Amino acid sequence: MKRDIILSGVGGQGILSIAAVIGRAALQDGLQIKQAEVHGMSQRGGDVQSNLRISSSAIRSDLIPHGAADLVVSLEPMEALRYLPWLSGEGWVITNTTPLVNIPDYPAAEALQRELEKLPHVVALDADAVARAAASPRSANMVLLGAAAPFLEIDIAKLEAGIRDIFARKGEQIVEMNLTAFRAGYEAAQKQAKR
């Protein structure tokens, strides 16, 4: 088993929480992981990106080469498109469609949507709306993790255990909100994949 994953978004969206959950679940599955993070201007809403490599055998480098990523998981559509050069030909993009307009010349949402629709393997969902519908408005990152779960090749129960571990210090109510968001994202991705 081998999965090379680019996680991307904007500072404050919860990219590193997604990486932590996947990392814990992978370790519980007896897999090896390497991670490299680029925080950019996260304090000001800038690009945040993480290379996450998971394998059942030794991993030599923590950076994913161009054209080798199995997944680009992004909490922001423009950031998803930014990392397409790293995606393999058979790779999948799992992205939130809600833009976070943080620069003056941010592209129109329709232009981003058209670019996403050109991709052969994409799950694009409004993670913010799914989170609100699941009564977890601050858990769009866990919605997106749920949408990516079918592509991770990691047991769902172990991902849920990772969520419990990561959010346990915040109390059971926060844990349950994040689990609800994760499950809602998983269901939304399943519906989209069946079309």
Rank of each mutant, 00 (worst) to 15 (best):
I156M: 14
F182A: 08
P120V: 00
H66D: 13
P120T: 05
F151K: 03
Y83F: 14
I54S: 09
R60G: 14
E176R: 01
I166T: 07
Q43L: 05
G40I: 07
A131Y: 02
P65S: 15
M142W: 10
V122K: 02
P99F: 01
A80S: 04
E90C: 07
A111S: 09
L119H: 13
L81M: 07
G171N: 06
E172T: 08
A161I: 05
R53G: 11
G162F: 06
F182S: 01
I156K: 14
R114D: 07
Q173Y: 03
E90N: 15
L71Q: 09
A131P: 00
L87H: 12
M142K: 07
G45N: 08
V122W: 10
M177R: 08
A181G: 13
A148Q: 09
E160C: 05
A157E: 14
M41G: 06
V48C: 00
D105W: 07
L145P: 06
G40A: 03
A68Q: 15
A135E: 03
A133W: 04
P150S: 08
Y83Q: 08
V93L: 08
R164C: 08
K118E: 10
P120N: 10
D105S: 14
Q43G: 09
Y106D: 02
S74W: 02
I59A: 05
G171D: 02
I59H: 03
P120M: 09
I54N: 07
V38D: 10
V101T: 14
I54F: 06
N96A: 09
R82D: 04
